[in-house]
């Protein structure tokens, strides 16, 4: 049942680029990544793209397929009709390095700013006791494969690079929530969620949840509960009013935040 599919692939680097047309053979059961690999092996040896596992486990092959953020290795060709032209572009929110490869260092910088797991220092390794029902929630968030598709999709930073400094994005707000809900973690991360990582910017549109290949309920299970926790903390009506009005509260007086000098990840 092989056929020739029409692919328009974005080729270029940080400076310039354009969509380029290709015709590539497709065989039964293949995914978009297979076809891109065939393109690379036969017509465009230097086509830059990332992949590792080809099984939806590593989060490397994020791209936009007909404008939709997806994993190339988990998008089957059979969902498209053979006559359709597939347009393959790099993730839009991140700067292009080459072709489908983008500079995702923003995400690594945000990851480095979140205060790490802080267990009770008196509990020795091997002595942790946690019940399954208490770890379920954080385990859901730890399914994250760091594909950054949610980061790429969230309207707060998609086409709004100016918000990047103040907003960590769904993946990393979820990381804050994961630690907040971790049964063995002792730190209180509610203030910094709001003030350093920009939880207030999120207006719960759920676009991040929709693109998550791990089907993590980012908005419902991480972001909204986090907002509720923050609101509980902030119930002092004056504080609450203040944060409503300014939308972006000042980040002064948040002693627990970790602010390592953000460095370029090479």
């Amino acid at each position: 049942m092989g056929y020739k599919a029409k692919f328009r692939v974005w080729r270029g680097d940080a400076g310039t680029g354009a969509l380029q047309d290709y015709e590539v053979e497709v065989n039964e059961g293949e995914v978009v990544l297979d076809v891109l690999h065939r393109l690379q092996a036969t017509q465009a040896n230097d086509l830059a793209l990332r992949w590792n596992c080809k099984a939806g486990k590593c989060g490397s092959c994020s791209m936009e397929i007909n404008g939709r953020p997806r994993l190339g290795c988990m998008t089957r060709m059979s969902v498209f009709s053979p006559s359709e032209t597939l347009t393959i572009t790099p993730m839009r929110t991140f700067p292009v390095i080459r072709d489908l490869v983008t500079d995702v260092s923003f995400n690594y910088e945000k990851a480095r700013q979140i205060p790490s797991f802080t267990p009770d220092a008196s509990v020795k390794p091997g002595e942790f006791r946690m019940m399954q029902q208490d770890v379920n929630r954080s385990q859901e968030f730890r399914k994250c494969i760091e594909c950054y598709l949610c980061q790429n999709t969230c309207h707060v930073i998609r086409d709004h690079a100016e918000n990047e400094a103040a907003f960590a994005g769904p993946r990393f707000l979820m990381r804050v929530a994961e630690l907040e809900m971790h049964p063995a973690d002792t730190a209180d991360r509610r203030d910094i969620a709001q003030e350093d990582f920009g939880l207030g910017y999120c207006n719960i549109t759920k676009c991040c949840t929709e693109v998550c290949p791990e089907h993590i309920k980012i908005t419902d299970n991480a972001l909204i509960p986090m907002k509720e926790r923050v609101a509980g903390r902030k119930y002092d009506p004056l504080v609450w009013l203040g944060s409503k009005i300014s939308r972006r509260p000042k980040s002064e007086g948040t002693p627990v935040a970790v602010r390592p000098a953000a460095k370029d990840a090479t």
Partner: peptide
Amino acid sequence: DRVWELEAWGALFDR
């Protein structure tokens, strides 16, 4: 010991 150490670094194994 190496597995327990992971838990002390934040890993959440099934219980």
